[in-house]
Design a protein around this nucleic acid. Structure first.
Length: 160
DNA sequence: TATCTGATTGTTTTC
DNA sequence: GAAAACAATCAGATA
């Protein structure tokens, strides 16, 4: 009954633009064997392992905490799909003020990501220009910059 | 044994 | 500008 709920029913923007089922099904499922699209593995091989991962959105930041709570309340539920679904519903029920701290965290992660991407791009140019640059300590130092941003950031909760 | 799937939303990237 | 890809998570399914 996967098609019965969720996927198509929930989206606000994108699902209106395109079939959500196609997004998922057409994306990963089709890619695996029979399709011409590269598999995850192939993609992983193609992409640079040094490339910084995309920052989590506010929803994903929220989901990290929500998973812990969900596990405590539902220790027998192991399916990630259940967590995702429950998290999505809760996210939609939350007010902007409740989402604010997660969005703030996401913004920080995004800022870090941009710095990492800058360092990464610089290294790429360097490598392309001079492929035998094994030093590349520079990027490391930039990466270390993220250290200055403490993970325990004060979440200023704006109560409305 | 190793890899993929599912389910969610938001952001980034690509075309 | 629109569509696709990808970010985390992990038990279960499949080859």
């Amino acid at each position: 009954m996967k098609g019965a709920k969720g996927k198509g029913a929930v989206k606000d923007k994108k699902e209106a633009l395109k079939p959500v089922d196609d997004r998922r099904v057409g994306k990963r499922k089709a890619d695996d064997k029979g399709s011409k699209k590269p598999t995850k593995k192939e993609k992983a091989a193609q992409k640079d392992p040094n490339k910084p991962k995309r920052p989590p959105s506010a929803f994903f930041v929220f989901l990290e905490e929500f998973r812990k709570i969900f596990k405590q309340e539902n220790p027998h539920v192991k399916a990630v799909s259940a967590v995702g679904k429950a998290g999505g519903e809760k996210w939609k029920s939350m007010s902007n003020a409740e989402k604010a701290p997660y969005e703030a965290k996401a913004a920080k992660r995004k800022a870090e990501y941009e710095k990492l991407m800058n360092a990464y791009n610089n290294k790429q140019e360097s490598t392309a220009d001079d492929d035998e640059d094994e030093g590349s300590d520079r990027s490391k130092s930039e990466v270390n910059d993220e250290d200055e941003d403490s993970e325990e950031d004060d979440e200023d909760e704006d109560d409305d």
